[in-house]
Design a protein around this nucleic acid. Structure first.
Lengths: 153, 153
DNA sequence: GTTCCTGCAAAAGCTTTGCAGAAGA
DNA sequence: TCTTCTGCAAAGCTTTTGCAGGAAC
């Protein structure tokens, strides 16, 4: 199993088509969440999505955002990231790739990673359904903006 | 950077020595938590550790377990796993290795994995301080005990 | 005696649930 | 009409915080 793929940002049209094929209603709220995720490829949290959409849909409730994200994740069009223990993050790119979280600015960046069969041993008889690779540290921008402190090394 | 290492279970004596070197008091409660982690290499949660130790130390509070685990993680002798969003798990083996969580029985198994420089691209100027590899699926025991259901594939 | 640690209680934060009303087919 | 979705409120869970009493050196 080789898992090198291009990470492609799906278009809203592609997403809508996929959801329709799976008989998932494309309500106004759900479309807005999808739209936000495609236009903000920054792995937003539920809170961020809610805050942004609440601006224009003042009646939107956080429950709906939670419900919608759950539906989208189960439909396979959105990936839930558990890179931080206190907050789920969401990624519209579902192709396999790694995630790096900067401990200073909090941003999450994508990186490509290849995991060949040879790279991991001892899982021969396991059924692997999901793979997450999370790195943490300091991103180049934050490294430039401050001298590397002792605790960083 | 090649990161293939043996995953060795440290002895209680080694751990005590390391903590003493870092001027961390080895209180009764802390020793008990350490002892539990070395004798139960099953990536227990805070709750599991608390429940087990509470049997013999009836006055033990959950805050102390939380505090102790935090101290041990910061001292570098325990690794915090965020493989599940609603619950932290703790691993006394701090050498780099992957974790597989079975969605049926909930067990977490270790596996060895090698991440060469060549395997991931685009992180050249990042300062990487922590790497987590989490796989999810069904473990061999659970696969044997039940016919593979449609949703597993 | 001073510092650090423990444990109780309360609070905080994210997520889920229940239910009634609204929207959509 | 009938099903699905939304949104408010409340509850559930893990984790953190504040503080007083206690232990250790």
């Amino acid at each position: 199993m080789s898992t090198e793929k291009k990470c492609t940002l799906p278009t809203l049209e592609q997403l809508k088509k996929t959801l329709q094929e799976r008989n998932i209603n494309l309500s106004h709220q759900r479309l807005k969440v999808l739209e936000y995720l495609t236009s903000h490829n920054t792995h937003p949290s539920t809170e961020e999505i809610y805050e942004a959409l609440h601006q224009e849909i003042t009646t939107l409730s956080k429950s709906t955002v939670y419900n919608t994200l759950k539906v989208l994740v189960e439909a396979g069009v959105v990936r839930e990231l558990m890179i931080e223990n206190n907050e789920a993050r969401y990624d519209i790119i579902t192709d396999f790739h790694g995630h790096f979280k900067c401990e200073r600015c909090g941003d999450i960046h994508n990186f490509s990673i290849r995991l060949d069969d040879l790279a991991y041993k001892g899982l021969g008889s396991y059924l692997i359904k999901q793979r997450d690779v999370y790195f943490k540290g300091v991103c180049p921008d934050c490294l430039e903006n401050k001298t590397i402190s002792q605790e960083d090394l």
